[in-house]
């Protein structure tokens, strides 16, 4: 089965990943989204906030009354929906990426500390995480946004805080598992210092579950941002964020199905694509976890 000429870990990873058709499809879709995000100003037919006031709620081009100038129709202010979706890709990817990084770095650090100091620093950290996990994520995010005020940056912060405990728990569990292994004992006996032990010996061996968690929380971040936008607390208009587009279009759902259906479908497909990739990653990186979720 294995390609004998490429025994490198990366090559091995790709071999396994590639066999998962769903993951490949997801990857292709996300590449498309990425291209949209990077080249939005050139790809989008119109400025996403330009209002064509003679064409409010114009239907998609293939329907009666639709115009080819607006392939997916326009919203309640006459803005081109396709352009807004394309520009929205930027925001969603940005929110996903930023909130994953913002949660990952402190989460891993806290998890390492908790793992390496199971007596002193560990318990308070883990209790604090328990406290955060006891509150429903969306409520906590709503409260944080209420404190910081709505907006892009604050949405990212709120989502990052909410997803922090998962990283801490995961890292700590992985560290505790690794610490019992022989190579760590060996490194300790050889006189390795704590930071070296943490970052050079143990951390790389905990990467697999972290990467999988990152892919999961990337898609969760897109969903959470959209949910906040739906509650009117996320990114503010006229910024074309998918969730808030959907929220402001909700009033027109019976007259103009496209303004609600299309942003929702975009969110669903993107999240699905990322989760497919996540599945592929899990299969390829961590056979132990293969059948979990």
């Amino acid at each position: 089965m294995m390609n004998a000429s490429s025994p490198s870990p990366l090559g091995e990873f790709w071999q396994t990943f590639r066999r998962n058709k769903g993951a490949l499809g997801g990857l292709a879709f996300m590449l498309l989204v990425l291209v949209c995000a990077l080249c939005a100003p050139w790809l989008a037919p119109h400025d996403p906030s330009q209002q064509f006031r003679d064409a409010l709620l114009s239907p998609p081009a293939w329907l009666d009354g639709g115009q080819w100038r607006f392939p997916l129709g326009t919203d309640e202010l006459g803005r081109d929906l396709l352009s807004r979706l394309i520009h929205g890709a930027r925001l969603s990817l940005l929110i996903g990426l930023a909130s994953v990084l913002l949660a990952l770095l402190p989460g891993v650090l806290l998890g390492l500390i908790a793992g390496f100091s199971p007596r002193h620093l560990g318990p308070p950290i883990m209790r604090a995480m328990d406290v955060m996990l006891a509150l429903p994520a969306l409520l906590l995010a709503v409260a944080i946004v209420a404190i910081l005020g709505p907006g892009l940056a604050n949405t990212v912060i709120a989502i990052a805080i909410v997803s922090l405990p998962a990283y801490v728990r995961l890292t700590r569990a992985a560290v505790l598992g690794e610490l019992e292994r022989d190579y760590v004992t060996a490194a300790r006996l050889a006189g390795a210092r704590l930071p070296r032990l943490m970052f050079v010996s143990v951390l790389p061996n905990c990467l697999a579950p972290l990467i999988i968690q990152a892919s999961l929380s990337f898609s969760a971040a897109i969903l959470d941002a959209a949910a906040l936008g739906f509650l009117g607390l996320g990114v503010q208009p006229p910024t074309p964020e998918w969730g808030s587009m959907l929220a402001s279009a909700r009033d027109y759902i019976e007259r103009a199905w496209w303004v609600v259906t299309l942003p929702g479908l975009t969110i669903l497909l993107s999240v699905l694509a990322i989760n497919l990739i996540g599945d592929g990653l899990r299969d390829a990186l961590d056979p132990k976890l293969k059948n979990g979720l």
Binding site: Q51, L77, P150, P238
Partner: peptide, 25 residues
Amino acid sequence: PNPGIGAQMLQADLRAVGIDAEIRV
């Protein structure tokens, strides 16, 4: 009835005459 679209319309009209308006909710 719909404060969001009102503010965005004003914002677009002002942009057309060279005023850069920011919406605060």
